[in-house]
Amino acid sequence: MTTDVHHGAGPGSEGIGGAVSGEAPDATRPETSYDAHFKVWRGDVDGGGLEDFTVEVNEGEVVLDIIHRLQATQAPDLAVRWNCKAGKCGSCSAEINGRPRLLCMTRMSVFDRAETVTVTPLRTFPVVRDLVTDVGFNYEKARQVPSFVPPPGLGPGEYRMQQEDVGRSQEFRKCIECFLCQDTCHVVRDHEENKRAFAGPRFLMRVAELDMHPLDAAEDAGLDRKSTAQDEHGLGYCNITKCCTEVCPENIKITDNALIPLKERAADRKYDPLVWLGNKIRRRTT
């Protein structure tokens, strides 16, 4: 299904007569600027392949800048999702040289100038077009986690919580929902069949966040978040390889601070060999 198409760095695509500006060859270019070689996956649900591009790179740029330059000069219909371009919205998730990353927070300076930079869509989700995937899986899972239950008898303005108590859940609420953790998690990355039973790190962390919320009254309302994590959201599938933590652009310690404690709490009810293993590993590293 792979087709290789080559594009030059010269004037832009045909059919847009003379409208493309700026990509003149070297003479006036600052020294910090160079031509990089990119491979970008293009295609849709019916298939596609990597296309080669040669494209200008300037000082300080990130991969998303290069994708935008490709759109403006060589491939106007190249599909990519993005929004804030500041690492705050989690829209521009993709895989760069096979690693799940935000396009807007990946500096070009981390690559050797001679290196080919390969950009592909998130592998775990069905492709829509080019770098855009259907992340609907995550929205379905979000709906399956029961919401915050406000404490009865406490009106707006009456909530009192200590900083140290909100701090734990606040760490998880830093999540920008880029879904890189969902993408990298090997429970679902190459195992479509696990998707039904497994909420993924992002939404197990959401369960942990609510479970650690100082005022969540779920338990009083008859909802045991710990056991639902195990029974309904597939916590048991997680074997704490920490891949999710490694790719998190917000540096949330998903495994150590959310998943393992959740496993421990769930294990009050049920023996889980991974918790035992997790504890051993943690003791060794700390």
Binding site: Y159, M161, Q162, V166
Partner: peptide, 17 residues
């Protein structure tokens, strides 16, 4: 205040507000 009843977690003062 209403946001708190929906689960928001703001930074706190020493007395918990």
């Amino acid at each position: 205040w209403e946001l708190e009843t929906w689960g928001a977690l703001f930074d706190r003062t020493p007395d918990g507000r």
